[in-house]
Structure formats: C-alpha cells, structure tokens
Simulated assay, not measured.
Amino acid sequence: MSSEAVSAPEPTVAPPPPRRRRRGRVLLIALLAVVVVLGLGTGGVGWYFSGVATEVSHEWEYPLTVLDVGDGTVTLPRDEATVRPGTWALAWKGGRALLGPVVKQDERSVVRNVAEVPQGTLTKGLAVHLDHWVYAGDPRRALGLEFRDVTYPTQVGAMPAWFLPGTTNRTTWVIAVHGRNADRAETFRAMPAVHRLGLPMLSIAYRNDVGAPRSPDHRNHLGDTEWRDVASAVAYARSQGATGVVLYGWSMGGAMVMTALRHSDDPGFVRGVVLDSPVMDWNATLDKQGAARNLPGFVTAAAKRILQWRTGIDLEDYDQRRYAPDLKTPTLLFTTDADATVDNAPSLAFAERAPRGMVTHVRAQGDHTEAWNVDPAAYERALHAFVTGLKP
C-alpha cells in the first residue's frame, strides 16, 4: 500500500481581539489630537503675544486711585513706585500734578507733597498713574524752553520733530529718540541739561507715532525699520549745518540708535551715544517679558519665531553684545537695577566687552528709564561730564 506524506497544518496566529485593536487606534488618535491641540494652542498663544510685541498703542492706563487730597499733599496706595524717592508726576485724564517727597507712609498708603498742579484739578477718587516722564505738552509749556516745530524727510513721509536751538556756537546736535509706543515727551527730562550745555537738540517722532506717518503695516518692528528714521534725522541735522551729532536713545530708542550707528556710512559724524535703559538684546528682553507673564519657555520661543516671520526682524542682529568689541564711539549708559521691562544683563555685558574707557556706565535704583527720576542731579552731572568730554 502506498502512503502519502501528510504535511502538518501551519499554525495560525489569532488576530488581536477587536477591543485591543480599537483601543490602540483610539490611543493613537488621542495622541495625535493632543499634539495638534498643543501645536495649535502654542501657535495661537505665540501669535497673540507676537501681536502684543508689535502692537502700536498710545493709550494710557490709570491703575491708581487717589485716596485723599490735603493741603499741598496727596495720598496714594503704597507700592514700590509710589514710595520711591525722586521727581515724579501724577497724570490723569485732563490733568497733571508734579510731586514732591514722601512726608508720611504706612503699610497701605503713602502721602507725598504736591509741588504744582499745572493742569486740571487733583481730587480724591481720581484714577491716575505715576508718570516718570514728569512733564507734558511742548518744550515751551512744559519747561519754558524755546523751540520750533520742524519736519525731516523719511522713507514714509515728512516726520515731525521739536528743534531746540543751542545757546552757544557749538554745532554738534543732540538727537533724542524715545522708546516703543512712547512719544517725544519722554525726552523732556534731558532737555534742560542739554540746553545748559548749549547744544542744539532735535527730539524726533518716528513712524507710527501720534501725528506721524504710519508704516505700511502699522506694526511696531522693534526698531528694525524705525532705525531708518533715526538715520534720516541725522541726515537732516547735517543738511541744517550740524557738524556732528550725539545720539540719545531711551529703551527701544537705544536699540534704534545703536543700529543706526552700525549702519552709518560716516560713523565718525556721531560724536557720542547716550543710552537710557536700552534694549541691547531683544531675545533676552522678550524672554524676560514672557516670564513676567508666566509663559512657558516654548510658548515664548514660538512667539519670537512668529514675530520674526511677521516683521522680518532678525532678533540675533539686535544682540548688541556682538558688536561691543568694535565700538569706536564714546557711550554713556544708564541702567536701573529694578528694571522690570528690559533685561539689563546684555547692557552690563556690552559695557564689559567694549574697549576700555569707551563706555561710561551709571547704575541707579529705579525702574525702567527712571535713572533721572530717582536722582536728577546725579544723572545730569554724568550727562554734563560725558558731553563736555566729547570731541567737538
């Protein structure tokens, strides 16, 4: 009898139970959904905060309420600013008061002298803000200084400026550049000292300021396009007989001044630079502001990437520390140890990396751009010594 080889049937692998397959798909879909939601959420928050950084806004907030008004005094809620010594003003809608020293304080309130109420009526219950610009209006009304309204040509149109003539035959002009979303009133605090030095002064508006031409997108570019208005102001000063300039920038104005200097075809025309609480690295300052808003680092990083895409700015180009070793222009640098707006570390590093003797660094105890407020006399002494030491 013949026999045939019989092959054993191949073992079969049972498919996973349907429930397990469904559970795997559900987990995968859920994971993808979380990734998408996190990505969209991060991108959305990043887009929002990049918009905050580039927003053009000239609105004032009034976070304090006047608790009482006495005979030559005002009582305010106590905080780090209201107890700070120095020269300040209270501002409210339609009014302003110049403040004197603290005369009394407790855990909740502080009483300060009122030196003058040049506008409006100071009353209990007013919503106010503590104004470190101190003055308002124009140079004549605010300080009794003669000036002319002028315009200087820029890429986006005729730009307004205040021109204060000098009191000597010196032909080096001071060009004053205010900070982000500020206005020319920020430069008032320097005007009396510059006037006593005898130098002409040009306090400029730039694109997107109130009363100034707008940029095509009406966005703040953190100085990346605005610096060109500083360069235009320098060209205007030269056309009007200036034989040199001192560039004087507050906050973002400092970033603009340094960028204009780096791009200048004739850097020797800039006799000196004064920087007051300058932005010397946008990356560091945006990180600081993100942390102050309790943003996770990856959200701030996303916001910075989106900001660069929206505006075309290269944030790395605004790390002035990179250029410090090549600095050839004498620089006076004011920083404040309690600056809650700008990261001071890049300014300190800039001063250290610059050639010896090229940067004069003055530290004060106030908040952002408040070095003058906390000690006007010391500030003006430093400014006077610096400017008089410059080449004519």
Rank of each mutant, 00 (worst) to 15 (best):
4 E>K: 00
11 P>Y: 01
11 P>L: 10
18 P>G: 14
27 L>M: 14
38 L>H: 08
39 G>D: 10
59 E>C: 11
64 L>V: 11
71 D>Y: 09
72 G>R: 04
80 E>R: 13
88 W>R: 09
90 L>N: 04
90 L>G: 07
90 L>C: 08
93 K>R: 13
94 G>Y: 04
98 L>K: 05
108 R>S: 12
114 V>A: 08
115 A>K: 11
116 E>N: 11
123 T>G: 03
141 R>K: 02
148 R>Q: 05
151 T>Y: 00
153 P>E: 01
157 G>M: 03
172 T>N: 05
180 R>W: 03
181 N>W: 03
188 F>W: 02
195 H>E: 13
210 V>M: 13
216 P>Q: 07
220 N>S: 14
224 D>G: 07
233 A>E: 03
235 A>G: 15
243 T>D: 14
245 V>K: 06
260 A>C: 10
265 D>G: 12
269 F>E: 05
279 V>R: 07
281 D>A: 15
290 G>N: 12
291 A>K: 15
315 L>T: 06
319 D>E: 01
321 R>I: 01
323 Y>W: 07
325 P>Q: 02
333 L>Q: 02
334 F>E: 02
335 T>A: 06
339 D>C: 08
343 D>Y: 11
344 N>F: 08
346 P>M: 12
349 A>Y: 06
350 F>T: 12
352 E>R: 15
353 R>Q: 15
359 V>Y: 09
360 T>A: 11
369 T>V: 15
371 A>W: 00
383 L>K: 02
383 L>T: 02
388 T>Y: 05
